[in-house]
Write a protein that binds this DNA or RNA. Structure first.
Lengths: 136, 136
DNA sequence: CCTTGACCTTCCCATCATTGGAACCTTTAT
DNA sequence: ATAAAGGTTCCAATGATGGGAAGGTCAAGG
């Protein structure tokens, strides 16, 4: 299997496969006589693991940790749970931040007539003037 | 007011002030004889506007649009509302994605004993094997 | 046999927003 | 006079990915 087929089989672009190899996330595969990378079932499995972890929002570094734990036969599941749990916390913090932004923006947009008058509470808020958002 | 004072007054780092100037987000200020940037009330006001917009998650490009609308006396508040509303939508999409990740991860962590057995449903899921998550 | 097109290789550049640092100059305070 | 603190420019790095150029390789069809 060459890199294009491995890419199709895993959903990881050929570019990214080479990149993951270059940063040491995955091991360099064998090469053909004409220097093409050759992938087998094991490599595809690893790539799918990486793809899934990235889809779940793990950073490449976290993915490397999880991959190490996955391939370590003596690993403790507690360690994995810890990585996952701290990732959940980070995600929830991010979500709360985004929700705060949305709340503020919705409030501003609600106060904004959306008509053609030049008064605009959104711009006023951004500018640090709060006359129109008081008492709401 | 030099760049350090402007930075303290606005919470925008001196580095970023120079950067915003270099990309044309803000105008180049006057200079002293010794080539120091000089900032006045207007410039500080602009920087605060930028800071607030960035804090609310607007990209630098969106911030530039908002800044333009703010400084345009003939602007329509409808335009501003449109920028804000589409930004809200983008944020909500992002939130939904993150919530999906959290849900999956919580499910996996819940199924994970967190003890020292090498079996780990989280890793099994990442690897694409779903025997332990079935029927839950 | 030769061409064409699809695929592979490496290498460099761009993105987005921000930070860090080097090398050097200016101002202020001791 | 000197040292500290601040300014200036320029270059590089981050994280993850995409784009593309220049060139080698393979398969199918004429």
């Amino acid at each position: 299997m060459n890199i294009g087929e491995a890419s199709n089989a895993t959903g990881v672009s050929a570019k990214m496969i080479r990149y993951y190899e270059s940063i040491g996330l995955i091991r360099a595969p064998l090469r053909t006589g004409s220097n093409y990378r050759v992938y087998g079932e094991d490599e595809v499995h690893v790539l799918r693991f990486v793809k899934r972890a990235r889809t779940l929002g793990f950073s490449v570094e976290e993915t490397a940790t999880l991959l190490g734990l996955w391939q370590d036969k003596t690993r403790a599941s507690a360690e994995v749970k810890e990585v996952a749990t701290s990732h959940i916390e980070a995600l929830e913090t991010k979500i709360a931040e985004l929700q705060g932004m949305v709340k503020t923006l919705k409030h501003l947009a609600h106060c904004c007539g959306g008509d053609n008058r030049p008064d605009c509470p959104i711009l006023d808020d951004l500018a640090g003037e709060h006359p129109t958002t008081k008492g709401h």
